[in-house]
Design a protein around this nucleic acid. Structure first.
Lengths: 373, 373
DNA sequence: TTGAAAGCGTTACCAC
DNA sequence: GTGGTAACGCTTTCAA
């Protein structure tokens, strides 16, 4: 009866550090010491406190602890991604989560969706939550707003895309070099009518890859009226439509350079739909799942999303450690290499004029002739 | 000079609601009213407050506001996923994020990685952060720990997998029905030696799909020594190895049922490696990207991850609204239909005894004979 | 090694 | 409409 009324009368239902302290017969500061792993607590006392915590099933309130906390950290970082369901971003996300978990740090992730408004809102949200650091994929525009929004003690690492107007670490792939490499690969096979399909032009990676693409064309002295650039292609469906339009035009390309993974998928679908996948060459920036098992296999410029995520997270924690020591590492541009993976689609030779002419009436026959040649 | 020293002397550098109130010439409670959209503030006052906020670039501290907050909400939900980089989970994640964003709510996501310890730790973390609700993919074991961990005012929606020992809403696919449907599809084509490859048996979806698989075999009176079950296959690599072993065995299966997306990818790779993709039938639970463009196309039992995420999030917000109104919706088991998508791999007829015998020496020839038959 | 008291920056309650 | 003042549950400071 007594113990029953006691458990009923236990405050307003919520267990606090005070209840734990009372239960363990210590002061609240001692409880605080135990849960934070601070020194100067005897083993016996610590044991009693832990028992009390387990018995009362107390979960410390993170808002209360992070409120007064200034020199210690909230053990959380903010992550802004293009979209959490893009395979590239999702893999990066997981790699970052793994590094963070090894530091006991939680990752707050948010999709940007190429919306500058959403970008700023997400960062504001992170700041309000007092995250220890930020890993950001930024959208079109300017990141100088970070200057006023992000306190100096919160390090920022940009991932995948370089920012404008804010100096911080960047971890990214060699977009210009990779795109040039892929384009040269097509040019070396003899292609002269090449189409480049890219994401929204405001996106840094898209513009960089376009620079690489154009640079390679220039090396080979390809005249401007010989190649085509399609910009602002953001989905696989849009890419598919773009390719259908391109190949139905009077002077269709003999090769396509796809600016990212979703575009590549759309291109593959379009070529299949026309039955011309063995006729029109394709090199894609970004690897795609099962791309090696398609017929032909998709030749890609592969990035390494796991390395990118890991590198960015490790850099962030290095900055954090450095800031803790009162220093700050200089902003660095970490460029990850990309790899050309040859699988077939990029090694298709340009169709001859006659084959191109007959393609409309008998795409399959032409494709077959192509293979047998 | 005066204004200069004033701005220098502005506290310890951190802008608070007090600074804003002073700047606007109002009390802090009024500032609080404005940022929380509470009534009883004149338009003119609100305007002055907003100007002060913009001028001082104040970001309210979420820890401070969420500390005292009990009847209002933190505008955040916790999401536990198998792994943020599984395509199915990532798509679900995005759908949930979209619904949450429309409610002005942030999503805290965490990967579970089929680790019960990580599962509990993640939920504890969410509770400490005082999330408004939880959407959980749970791992093997028992979820009765939630009873003590999750306060009654925090609704839980289980997604993808049914929990044990805790009653709450569930949003999931028809795993048993889908697996039976896929298996029957193979049986109807005449297959009698079928292998089922499944994820870790502790995972609810894996066991459910196995039940459906076995149920269909039973309908067709397939004797136990005729089929094979491979359990605990968690990666594409493991699935690939399993298939290579199966097809090298004395009585190899003529058809394979793959229990989820990663397994399916491994099966496809293994069949390709052996050159037997036109000879051994395959039906996969879960659609896979580009599965329609492979040769043969992969016949799948497709789930709808977007619908699953959206449904789960909407259910959570419905519960939230209901709790706000003092009620609580009864725990419901929402089952989403799955769809059989016929693409070729599941329609391959069983190899004849002679074809099987010659398969080792000439898999391609046998496959071709198969098609022409 | 320990704990009492003073915050942290906001929201809740109640008086004006 | 508005603004004090007392919480909220912890960390920090400092004295013991």
């Amino acid at each position: 009866m007594t113990s029953l009324s006691k458990s009923i009368g236990r405050g307003s239902g919520r267990v606090t550090i005070r209840d734990v302290a009372q239960q363990a017969g210590v002061g609240i500061k001692t409880v605080s010491r135990v849960i934070n792993g601070e020194p100067n607590v005897s083993a016996a006392t610590a044991e009693r406190v832990k028992a009390a915590i387990a018995q009362l099933q107390w979960e410390p309130d993170s808002h209360a602890s992070n409120l007064r906390r200034t020199h210690t950290r909230t053990k959380s970082i903010g992550l802004l991604l293009g979209s959490v369901d893009n395979p590239f971003a999702a893999t990066t996300h997981r790699a970052i989560e793994d590094v963070a978990a090894s530091h006991g740090v939680a990752v707050l992730a948010s999709s940007l969706d190429e919306d500058p408004v959403r970008e700023v809102a997400a960062v504001e949200n992170f700041i309000r939550r007092k995250v220890d650091g930020l890993i950001l994929t930024t959208s079109t525009g300017n990141q100088s707003y970070l200057e006023e929004l992000v306190p100096p003690r919160i390090p920022v690492v940009f991932i995948d895309r370089e920012p404008f107007g804010y100096e911080a670490d960047v971890v990214r792939s060699d977009n210009v070099g990779g795109a040039a490499l892929g384009t040269r690969h097509l040019l070396a096979r003899g292609h002269r009518r090449i189409a480049g399909i890219f994401d929204r032009s405001g996106i840094w990676t898209a513009s960089q890859r376009k620079i690489g693409f154009l640079g390679a064309l220039e090396e080979f002295d390809i005249p401007p009226d010989s190649y085509t650039i399609v910009d602002d292609v953001t989905t696989a469906e849009a890419a598919e439509a773009a390719v259908l339009a391109l190949l139905g035009s009077p002077a269709p390309p003999t090769a396509i350079f796809a600016g990212q993974n979703l575009i590549s998928i759309g291109v593959v679908r379009a070529l299949r739909k026309l039955g011309r996948q063995h006729e029109v060459a394709l090199v894609s920036f970004d690897d795609i799942e099962l791309g090696d098992l398609l017929d032909p296999g998709v030749t890609v410029i592969a990035q390494d999303p796991v390395a990118m995520g890991r590198t960015a997270a490790e850099r962030l924690f290095a900055q954090l450690a450095s800031i803790h020591a009162g220093e700050q590492l200089p902003a660095t541009d970490l460029v990850l290499p990309v790899e050309l993976i040859v699988r077939g689609s990029g090694e298709i030779a340009p169709a001859t004029a006659s084959a191109t002419a007959s393609a409309t009436t008998s795409a399959r026959a032409s494709a077959r002739a192509q293979r047998d040649a």
